[in-house]
Design a protein around this nucleic acid. Structure first.
Lengths: 360, 360
DNA sequence: TTGTAGGCGTTATCAT
DNA sequence: ATGATAACGCCTACAA
């Protein structure tokens, strides 16, 4: 399909000619040519001090603002960078976005952010929309749908994929292997002495990365000969579910159980539920999460979790992209940067230790 | 100052003429005129079925993507909407953004999002930058700096301010009074029987809304003749601070104390710290927050907090703005919508009640 | 319903 | 160092 049709019921909106102040106006007022103004704006030192001053003065007086739209069209590259994330609400992506934006903005790039809501169809549409703004680069989360590859390949701009490694990268891939997260966690809880395992993931039917973490967890333990209870929460109703969850769990001190959650929010809810029920964590039950929220180190007991590097992902993506944009080059070989993750062992899985000890 | 100069070291980047497929190319291939293609893209039903089909076919074959930059420049209005929030990481703003985006995107608008990092100077610069993209509308958080008002007034586009009420609105203001939040909380904890009060706010020197909540809290209690300990946390080091905080607090069962925090994250940390120290909440100490995180109703004890309506803020802003954009009108009278907030009373301040009862 | 002509505000090229 | 001129790709009249 082509582009979407939108109603064009915007009759008024002033006449054709907006009364916007243009570069020509500024040039006329400053008694220089438009080219000189343009040049001044891009590189002030290339203009004689006298005229520079005049131009600056009129800009100040008139409150002139350059029209980037026209500039972008005129053949300079567009200083906009498109970013598509699955969710704006997710704290991980927010951190990455913030980090990216700091760097991009410092170099004069504007971010066009969209969220796909974990929906592949939406993502493809968004790709089209983004491309229609002819961005200088595009940042995607994970893999794009195969159908979208040709479109992206034709765009001729650097494309970064973040938060997940694997598949066929375009130009740059920055992230980590989510299966390894699951495996690392499995290895840890096994080493601690837990012998009954429950993995609770939310929205795993759409959040493929959460799914991969679960898979990695199960794979490691299956190989050891254990069965894992996997509980998939359909939506964000952490809520009732946590009480239900604890009802389903059979605690047995001879075969200590651990609950691994696909994010720290769930894990912390579980911690509270344990408090409510008087279940001792980590001795009667282990609990672990993913994400290392600011809160997680201050919970009681403090939460064992896995910490990705959302800010670094953003920083690296931004830096690389800017290099390619400004040199006008595209890497011949796709670049893959594995940032890994950190398993943060805290009290909530410290089965072998004295869990009562206050942290210092 | 005019606009920022950025190095233009992007020599390569293909020749002047990008090899991008244009509407003319599509027209030629489909054997129609460019304007027919343009018309088709905007309103498919206005073109004869035969040609429509031909055009659609060539678009599919070539993978043509319309260039909105050119369209926007050509005098149609620009389907971009600028949004400036203080932080991308804050869960409140994320929810508002997500809600806004759903509505805007459904109507074909792209969001240009920036975060000011609670910095006024940055905000003014961002305003300039956003204006340079000639957006169809602008969304600000709270009040813009007075210096920025003329710029905004001249822009001639609808401007929405969200999350805070008061001052001189431009066209639309959607939010609530933060002082009232503080007052409502004060009234509640006083009614519960707490008689010693501590307010802990983070980043209040830059987050003026958090400051106002604190002020509202203090004002109400000062009027009752009480003194309030206000603790301002400079940065996000929740962390060590929570332990320090509890060291400073003198608990006295005859004069029960309540801790009110400027956000739920801090409040939940405090809840955990109380567990760690064996302090009984709410009987020995009350705790309240702000924000109503998903987690907050599942903490133990469940957290008393104030719930704003971030999604509604986003939805209303988006809806109103779209109306004005598409009718090409600007409201003559600024519109103010007070969404209020909800005081959610839960266990953590239930001094008079049996706090042991498990929630049902 | 379809085609033609002109212009949107800027930048790049090429003289001067 | 400065200025004239021709794109950039599309949209909106207006004409056919």
């Amino acid at each position: 399909m082509g582009d979407l049709p939108y109603p064009n019921n915007h009759a008024k909106a002033g006449s054709r000619k907006g009364n916007r102040l243009t570069m020509n106006d500024v040039a006329a007022l400053a008694k220089v040519s438009p080219s000189t103004v343009s040049l001044f704006l891009r590189n002030p030192s290339a203009v004689s001090a006298k005229r520079a001053e005049r131009i600056q003065a009129t800009i100040n007086e008139t409150g002139y603002t350059i029209n980037r739209l026209a500039g972008a069209l005129a053949g300079a590259h567009n200083r906009a960078v498109g970013v598509i994330v699955p969710s704006l609400i997710n704290a991980f992506f927010s951190e990455t976005l913030q980090a990216m934006q700091e760097i991009f903005e410092a170099r004069g790039y504007q971010l066009l952010i969209s969220n796909s809501d974990y929906d592949t169809k939406r993502e493809i549409e968004l790709l089209r929309t983004h491309l229609s703004w002819s961005p200088a680069a595009l940042v995607l989360t994970g893999y794009p749908h195969p159908d979208a590859r040709p479109m992206l390949a034709e765009a001729g701009i650097p494309i970064a994929q973040m938060w997940e490694l694997g598949g066929q990268p375009f130009h740059l891939q920055v992230g980590f292997f989510h299966e390894k997260v699951g495996a690392a966690l499995a290895e840890h809880v096994y080493a601690q002495g837990y012998r009954a395992f429950t993995y609770i993931g939310s929205r795993m039917h759409v959040d493929l990365r959460a799914k991969k973490r679960a898979d990695g967890f199960c794979a490691w333990l299956t190989q050891k000969g254990y069965e894992i209870d996997v509980i998939a929460l359909e939506d964000q109703t952490t809520t009732i579910t946590m009480a239900n969850l604890f009802e389903q769990i059979h605690l047995n001190d001879n075969v200590p159980r651990v609950l691994c959650f696909s994010n720290d929010i769930l894990a912390i809810s579980a911690l509270f539920e344990a408090h409510r029920l008087g279940i001792s964590v980590p001795n009667s039950l282990g609990i672990a999460g993913f994400g290392d929220l600011p809160l997680s180190q201050f919970s009681f007991p403090s939460l064992t979790t896995v910490k990705p590097y959302p800010k670094d992902i953003g920083r690296i993506v931004a830096t690389r992209l800017i290099t390619w944009i400004e040199t006008g080059t595209l890497p011949t070989e796709p670049e893959t940067i594995d940032l890994g993750f950190e398993l943060i062992v805290r009290e909530s899985t410290a089965l072998n230790l004295t869990s009562q000890a206050p942290s210092t």
